[in-house]
């Protein structure tokens, strides 16, 4: 059971990284990014392509892919997302959902729907003795790196000048402009950063999950539930809910296998009835 709980936390690590990016983007831009799952998929394909076509391995991919996707995200914000400001949020849904479909189909055209394989990095090929049981070293690494990244983002947001500006712009964009801060200048890097996190999750997924064009679409539905449970726009909430949902669905899988797919959504409905703003919703803001 403890081993299954550990599996859950590793799954939760992906939810947390993706939900974190979604939360930061939603907070700063007010856009629900339906293309987030597609960027996760591109992250995994990015690692695959780097190895397959250029012989560049996992460790380099872990840096190169998020940086490249972050730059793509910044360009996307500049060219398309920016034009949505002031419009009905529905246009944002349409744009990002359309982007997700386009990206998926472009990859499908090239690689088909069959899953690609990606070998674990050699260094992390074995197992680690965690006291109670042996566990694949790679999964331990995923969990640790995700926790470190989430913690670093948390510190960045709460302890630095940049974080202060992002929190202020998220809470009261108009006032923040009137106090002398060029909010629009920060929107592009924040969007790129959220996309880079999705790309990082994708690279991490490559060695342990099936790499195919639909991998993001399947996952992102759950991530939206995670974001809603954590509280839309709450950074801390989305990370905490990410790990929580990973844990709950893994244990649900063990005890009530029939419900394993729906458990997350039952939990979401329950949380919404109990606390409509999510567990850590707006009343707490970004903290």
């Amino acid at each position: 059971m403890i081993e299954q709980a550990f599996n859950g936390l590793v799954g939760g690590a992906f939810y947390a990284l993706l939900a974190l990016g979604l939360a930061v983007i939603f907070g700063m831009l007010g856009v629900v990014n339906f293309a987030h799952g597609a960027f996760y998929m591109l992250g995994a394909f990015g690692a695959f392509i780097l190895l397959d076509s250029f012989g560049i391995g996992f460790w380099a991919a872990l840096v190169i892919v998020p940086v490249l996707l972050g730059l793509v995200g910044m360009a996307l914000e500049r060219l398309l997302i920016r034009r949505l400001s002031g419009l009905d949020p529905l246009y944002g849904f349409l744009l990002t959902f359309g982007l997700a479909l386009i990206l998926q189909d472009l990859v499908r055209r090239q690689y088909g729907v069959q899953s690609q394989q990606y070998a674990r990095p050699e260094l992390l090929g074995g197992t680690l003795n965690l006291g109670l049981f042996d566990y694949p070293a790679y999964q331990v690494f995923v969990l640790a790196l995700s926790a470190v990244v989430c913690g670093a983002v948390w510190l960045l947001l709460t302890r630095t000048k940049i974080g202060m500006i992002v929190r202020a712009s998220t809470e009261k964009p108009e006032l923040t402009r009137a106090l002398g801060i060029d909010v629009s200048r920060w929107v592009t890097p924040v969007f790129g950063f959220g996309i880079a996190l999705a790309g990082l999750a994708g690279v991490l997924a490559a060695p342990m999950r099936a790499i195919n064009p639909l991998m993001g679409g399947d996952l992102i539905i759950v991530v939206f539930a995670v974001v809603v449970i954590g509280g839309l726009g709450s950074v801390f909430g989305s990370v905490a809910a990410g790990f929580l949902i990973g844990l709950v669905s893994a244990l649900g899988n063990l005890y009530v296998p029939a419900l394993s797919q729906t458990l997350v959504f039952i939990l979401m409905a329950a949380v919404l009835l109990w606390r409509p703003a999510g567990l850590f919703g707006r009343q707490e803001g970004l903290t």
Binding site: A168, A178, G180, L286
Partner: peptide, 23 residues
């Protein structure tokens, strides 16, 4: 734009006081 006006030395004290909850 507003931020440029602020940088010219205009300080706004809004009617709702404009205090940030997350700061």
């Amino acid at each position: 734009p507003p931020h440029r006006r602020a940088r010219l030395g205009i300080g706004w004290v809004p009617d709702d006081r404009g205090v940030y909850a997350t700061l």
